[in-house]
Design a protein around this nucleic acid. Structure first.
Lengths: 204, 204
DNA sequence: TATTTTATTAGACAGCGAGTTGATTATTTA
DNA sequence: TAAATAATCAACTCGCTGTCTAATAAAATA
């Protein structure tokens, strides 16, 4: 049958991924060996190399799949055309879906974030989403005195910040519900000089 | 004489660090071995282990020293007490000094950022600075509808964003001067919902 | 300058994990 | 059931790791 992956492969890959996640939780990605993974996954070491080049390849593929999931959720925005994303009108339902996904895959997300940092996810998503959605909308949310800053600066700015929040939320055990988180992130209005805030605004 | 480090040690450590930076630029930290470092640094491999536990220890110590430098610059804020950091009144001179430091140590900064991501620097600085400076000031730059978000969320928020900007700036070859960057970061006023901005405001 | 202290070197060592291979067994799918 | 495909096992080479010792070079000290 085409389209379906051999059950043995699914079994093996799932075992490998589970082992990866639990090992990252235990000792971190750097300290973890392919042998560790295969031992915990109860598979032969040779089998691992049937599917992945090395442990970095495994991590990359895992990241890619997560990115794919997130992209699919975000792409729903594209289907809802004509939305004014500038002023608070971002579809809340989609953001909620995102947080539900994060929560459902909390351990995996944490493992990835702990290993590659927010940057990796942010960069991946930015890369894949750029042309799909953002190229069309020219929202102007950021006012500044001089036009010295390239647009990309500001993107990496905010995107990283969001995954910082997601990471904190996961680490704290998802105390708030996905709905609450979505509402917070879509409703927070930030006013004031960014740099000053970075240095001082720790308390509310 | 006490307080001074043996000239040979300084020589060796400098050679090691230079080798580290250039090797990170070439092949990245993961792919790089202790042997690579010592070969490029023209020192005996045993000498490396006289100073560092392994390559991770080397990276950590390097990061710590950079953090120390940055902390020293930032601590000048503490000496300028009574400043209203809320409304645009962050001492510009200090921010300029920061960017001058980044520029002067551009390759080192890039190597660290490329390897550990912004998170590491951000976390380190946050940790060391927290009690020195921020615990005193209770600036309220962020308005939101509900008080659901813990303060730490918002800190990791903004701090990461700044190093994102620094990284971009370095990668582009420091086209803007430190003064310009400092002015931009202290003058940019961000208004609007953060999450929406993260998704849409790529163009100005 | 002579002496002492310390850093670096060269080389060797065992150990481990990486990545590959070929023959064999087990499972799936058609 | 037969053909195709995946997983297994053992064995092997390779390079890097971290450690150690004796010898040497360089710096600090008095």
């Amino acid at each position: 049958m085409s389209g379906t992956v051999d059950r043995r492969i699914r079994r093996t890959k799932k075992a490998i991924r589970d082992a990866l996640v639990s090992l990252i939780e235990e000792k971190g990605f750097d300290a973890l060996s392919v042998k560790d993974i295969t031992t915990r996954a109860n598979i032969n070491r040779g089998t691992f190399y049937l599917h992945y080049k090395d442990k970095y390849d495994l991590l990359d593929q895992t990241l890619e799949e997560v990115t794919q999931d997130i992209e699919n959720i975000l792409l729903e925005i594209a289907s809802l055309s004509g939305i004014d994303v500038v002023n608070d009108h971002l579809p809340l339902a989609i953001v909620i879906k995102l947080f539900e996904y994060f929560k459902a895959n909390a351990r995996l997300m944490q493992a990835i974030l702990a290993t590659k940092g927010n940057n990796a996810l942010q960069t991946q998503i930015k890369k894949t989403m750029w042309h799909h959605v953002f190229e069309k909308n020219s929202a102007t949310l950021i006012k500044k005195e001089k036009l010295l800053v390239p647009a990309e600066y500001l993107i990496s700015y905010i995107a990283a910040a969001h995954f910082g929040v997601v990471q904190e939320w996961l680490d704290r055990g998802c105390r708030e519900t996905p709905e609450e988180m979505a509402r917070i992130l879509t409703s927070i209005t930030f006013r004031g000089p960014l740099f000053a805030a970075g240095l001082s605004s720790h308390s509310l």
